[in-house]
Every structure is written in C-alpha cells, then in structure tokens.
Design a binder for these strands. Structure first.
Lengths: 119, 119
DNA sequence: TCAAGTAGGGCTAAATTCAGCCGTATCTAC
DNA sequence: GTAGATACGGCTGAATTTAGCCCTACTTGA
C-alpha cells in the first residue's frame, strides 16, 4: 500500500478532472466500458498491451473515485461486471470532445511524440 | 537529457490530448497565459508553488508541442514572452468545459483525494 | 488429472516525473 | 560594488507510476 506524500493540487476544476483521468489506461477503460465491454477478462483482451494486474488496479481506482461501479454476481463460475456510474456517464461527452480534438490535430501532434527527449 | 523507453500510446485522440496536458503545472500555465500573464517571472509569481526550474521545463515542452510560442525580445534587459498558438487557443474551450465538470463535481471528488492510498 | 478460463492480489524493480540546489549571464538602482 | 531583477540550464535524489513476476481458488471441458 502506498500513501501520497506530496499534496494534490485541487485549486481548479481541471485538476480534479486530470486527477480522475490520471493513469495510463483509464481512458481506454472508461471508453471500453461505455462501449459495452464490462467484464475484466474482456477488457484485458481489448487492452492487451497493459498487464492484467495494472488494469485491475486502475479499475479499483475508478471505482473508488465513483466513476465506475463494480457488480459481483454470486454465481459459481464467479462473474464480475463493471459499468459507468451516472457521474462516469457525464464524462462521456467530454471524452468525445477531447478525443475529437486529438484526432483533428493528430497530423501535427503525432510526429512530436516519437523519439521525444526530456530534460 | 532523458529519452523515453516505453512506447507512447497514441491510438486514440484522447491519449494525444492527455499527452499534451501531461505535466503537473501545464494546465495552470496554459490558463495563465490565456489570461494575459506572458512572462516567465510573472508566471512563477502566479504559480509560486512550483519551482521556477520545473515551470521552465514544462513551458519548453508546451513550445515543442506547438501549444505555446515563445518570443525573445532582443533588448538589453532581455525579455521573453509566451503566447498561445492557434492550436493552443483551440484548447481553451475544452479546458473550460473540463474545468466546469470538475467544479460541478468538486463536492463528490475532493474528499476522495485526501488521504488517498494506492495499491 | 491436466489444461484453460474465471477473478484477484503480493511483491519487486524499472521507468518517469517532480523538487530543489547551484551556477551562468546581463541590466538597473542605490 | 552590492543587491535584486531579468532569463536559463546542469545536476541529484525523492516521489510516483508502470511493468511483470508469481500465487491463490474455483469451474469447465477434454
């Protein structure tokens, strides 16, 4: 278990948004769940570049942030389904707009992220 | 100089957006520049919680990503001004919408980020 | 029984970002 | 000339996130 040592910046609303979306695969997870992929195994097959371990971790964070809800069916083969909460659903139009921005400027942005160097 | 070793995810437009906004103070920088605070020293006084060093680094990244342009005036006291590029200006309505989402849900989100634990 | 599928977590190290110190210039003003 | 302002970057270690290993427990089907 890891506890944050530096304070989180919450002064402006955008930081709240970024804090929720912060995590390499959370966007993909939210979008996939929105598209009807609800089970952990399915999500892993869809987002196969991420480890199963990390997907579970980020799903748990989304649950604790109230974006996604988790339902465990008390069956014998043990089944779990995720779905968006009402709060999570309010993210969808924002994600759409933002993704649209990225696509519209892909030709400009994409070359910049290849072979990038940081100081 | 640091070179990325793991591939950047660029499949969806939202990841492009997140890649641009990725950096603890970039949102504040973009917004402050939009509000007319153009000089490095002024920005540092406005965002005094961040070190001057880090602000410079993130400003350079924003410049290299085509979001912000940097103008050096060839005067004697040496003066620098930043401003948003046309691409950077297209981010403003998105930032406004996203910040609005954060504010609207602040009462729900804020308690979750205090004393947070990670696995 | 053995393989494969379901779901989940402990643990460690790599990768990346952030914080903060120090040093370089030039100019203004006292 | 000493202090303070402008602007910039090298460097180091802390903080945080990500990757990838292994293990549990149950069920289905061959």
């Amino acid at each position: 278990m890891y506890k944050k040592k530096l304070p989180v910046e919450l002064d402006c609303g955008l930081h709240l948004f970024m804090e929720v979306m912060n995590g390499k695969w959370k966007i993909s997870l939210i979008w996939s769940i929105h598209c009807g992929i609800r089970r952990p195994g399915e999500l892993h097959r869809k987002i196969s570049k991420a480890s199963r371990r990390l997907l579970d971790t980020q799903l748990n964070q989304l649950v604790s942030h109230g974006i996604v809800s988790k339902t465990s069916f008390d069956q014998k083969p043990l089944k779990v389904e995720y779905s968006l909460t009402p709060l999570g659903q309010t993210l969808i139009p924002i994600i759409e707009l933002t993704a649209h921005w990225g696509e519209a400027n892909r030709s400009v942005l994409e070359p910049l992220f290849l072979n990038e160097q940081y100081a």
